[in-house]
Design a protein around this nucleic acid. Structure first.
Length: 273
DNA sequence: AGGATAGCCTGCGGGC
DNA sequence: TGCCCGCAGGCTATCC
């Protein structure tokens, strides 16, 4: 679903609604989306929201008293804010209401996402060290190092390594394909065959694609909108994702489609080697 | 032990 | 029109 740029945009769009605001009430409408204690306290009832952090595709609401709630949007998750007047749309699983009357909805039709109540920042740290470095907030050189180390001796495809959140946090199917195209690297290449210079190029391409996508508000295919219901515009800039069989924007040749790590993969056989 | 496979869910578009 | 199939932005547990 939402990958790093979409989650970052949701995070930014939530800030004006939640930062410095106090949660007055929490309503859980479908308990199974809460992965941990389901008490109002664990779900930030009474909390003053001090920060909203992000690592990769995960977002964390951090309360002034140290409570933390991790939100993962999965494939179809949304966090929506409204004035609390309209009828709830379908698949809204959690509803927070702030003291000022803003209603914050966690909506997730496919329910691959969820929320994880954590005791504090220590627990968040422990959860997030398991992830690789963030694809956007990390210097390109460090991203390249992480890629080189993950590829060393690995027989899996380059794209499979990019999708592995333990290697690098935040890259999903769209941006893996787009970064490989920008770097001129075929996503099917075995990771261990990647030369160090190519890993550096791929790291640069990744950051460039992620930053451009954030600037465009992310990629809205079906479900994705930010907290204010706005869609992202980055789809118009996709060079390969969703364009299998169409003409390469660079050479005009026919883009090829295959499957890597169970994910549809599109690349240009001419521009990507 | 890394890496490839199901499985979790709902909704939508295409083909018949 | 309507039904059935395949497919979708993620991740985990399980198996080889």
């Amino acid at each position: 679903m939402p990958e790093l740029p979409e989650v970052e945009h949701v995070r930014r769009s939530l800030l004006p609604h939640l930062l410095g605001e106090r949660i007055a009430a929490v309503l859980v409408r479908r308990a199974s989306v809460v992965k941990g204690p389901r008490t109002p306290k664990a779900l930030l009832a009474g909390a003053l929201i001090a920060r909203i952090d992000r690592r990769g595709k995960q977002m964390a609401l951090v309360a002034a008293d140290g409570r933390v709630l991790v939100i993962h949007l999965g494939m179809s998750g949304q966090v929506l804010c409204d004035d609390g007047v309209a009828t709830l749309p379908p698949h809204v699983h959690i509803v927070w209401t702030t003291q000022r009357g803003t209603r914050v909805l966690f909506r997730d039709p496919r329910r691959f996402g969820g929320v994880w109540p954590l005791a504090g920042l220590d627990a968040l740290q422990r959860r997030w060290v398991a992830l690789g470095p963030d694809g956007l907030d990390t210097p390109a050189s460090a991203v390249a190092t992480a890629l080189v180390e993950a590829c060393r001796g690995s027989r899996r495809a380059v794209k499979a390594a990019l999708l592995d959140q333990h290697v690098l946090a935040g890259v999903g199917n769209i941006y893996a394909d787009e970064a490989c195209f920008l770097a001129g690297i075929r996503p099917t290449r075995r990771a261990q065959r990647l030369k160090p210079g190519e890993a550096v190029g791929l790291a640069r391409a990744l950051r460039s694609v992620l930053a451009a996508a954030v600037a465009a508000g992310g990629s809205s295919l079906r479900d994705y909108v930010d907290a204010d219901g706005r869609a992202g515009e980055f789809v118009a800039q996709h060079a390969v994702y969703g364009r299998g069989g169409l003409a390469c924007v660079r050479c005009g040749g026919r883009l090829r489609q295959t499957v890597i790590a169970q994910r549809t993969t599109v690349f240009c056989p001419t521009c990507q080697r």
